[in-house]
């Protein structure tokens, strides 16, 4: 095991982690703010990448293509939101339905299962080839800027009247209705915003890796949750401010990719990574439950002994 091969992979870890960090921030909006686990994102990630590539190939400016990808994500979130609010389908199932529908839609967008996009042919924002270059085109720098701008915009938005009503909806539905908030509207809005960000992340990812693939989003929700949870476990005691909590999520995604790289370096197959990710996320999601259940019981027994 050559330590240098791991060190060599670090720039790529940082760039990929930051791009996935944008996706994880999207997951944070639904999972932590709206209190909904939205499975749409597995499909939206590819939708974003696919939309970006097809618009680029059609001659669109790179920023127009990014905007197009963002809007495609908004639409995916809108669909899930309408399934959930207008059709009364439980949120998790609504997300699964949209995700399935998106599989076909993504194939329609791309016309085939896989589409390459070359940075030599098009003017892209990020590319894997530049990961060691020093300069404004370095993907680590570009994706970090994206993360910072997105966090700043979200920080502003969730401080507005509308953003506050979104947070209230996730915190307490009965209270929100009693305060005159149309919770159906806020839920749909939150799902749209979240999926818009995931699509944006998908667009960056497609540029970075040089292609979009219909399977590129498989398990994305779990990676997003992993990033959210890793960020919280490590930073929850020092990062209390909302913007810092979002930053923690993005850093969580980088750490996830670092662990990923280490595991591969240790000799595990990439094919096994989804299994490992699932187990890690399950473990961290279970901690609050175990804490409440076993720790309390242990405390009671301990108290009984002393009495």
């Amino acid at each position: 095991m050559d330590i240098m091969s791991l060190v060599n992979a670090l720039p790529s870890v940082a760039a990929q982690g930051l791009i996935w960090g944008i996706m994880a921030i999207g997951v944070f909006i639904t999972f932590r703010i709206l209190d909904v686990a939205d499975l749409t994102v597995d499909g939206t990630l590819c939708t974003g990448g696919a939309t970006f590539i097809m618009l680029t190939m059609a001659g669109a400016n790179v920023w127009a293509a990014m905007l197009g990808a963002f809007c495609a994500g908004l639409m995916a979130g809108l669909l899930t939101g309408l399934f959930h609010t207008a059709c009364g389908i439980p949120a998790i199932l609504a997300g699964i339905l949209t995700q399935l529908a998106l599989y076909s839609i993504n194939l329609r967008i791309m016309g085939q299962a896989n589409r390459p996009v070359s940075s030599r042919q098009y003017d892209l924002l990020v590319s894997q080839q530049d990961v060691r270059e020093v300069g404004l085109h370095n993907p680590i720098l570009v994706s970090a800027l994206f993360v910072i701008v997105i966090i700043a915009l979200l920080y502003w938005f969730f401080g507005t009247e509308l953003g506050s009503s979104l947070r209230a909806t996730g915190a307490n539905l009965a209270m929100s209705r009693a305060q005159g908030i149309n919770v159906n509207v806020t839920k749909v809005l939150g799902l749209m915003l979240s999926n818009g960000l995931v699509a944006l992340s998908g667009a960056l990812l497609a540029q970075y890796q040089g292609f979009a693939d219909v399977n590129m989003g498989r398990g994305a929700i779990v990676i997003g949750l992993a990033a959210v949870i890793i960020g919280e476990v490590i930073f929850s005691r020092i990062f209390r401010n909302f913007a810092l909590r979002l930053l923690a999520v993005a850093i969580g995604a980088v750490i996830y990719y670092l662990v990923y790289q280490v595991v591969i370096w240790l000799g595990l197959k990439t094919d096994d990574m989804k299994l490992i990710t699932a187990l890690i996320v399950a473990f961290f999601l279970a901690i609050p439950f175990w804490k409440g259940r076993y720790f309390d019981r242990w405390m009671k027994r301990g108290g009984g002994d002393r009495a």
Binding site: F157, G159, T160, E161, L162, G163, S164, S165, Q179, G180, I181
Partner: peptide, 12 residues
Amino acid sequence: RRGKRRTLRPGI
């Protein structure tokens, strides 16, 4: 803000 339109003005 009960009964008012919630806009992009500051929440507080």
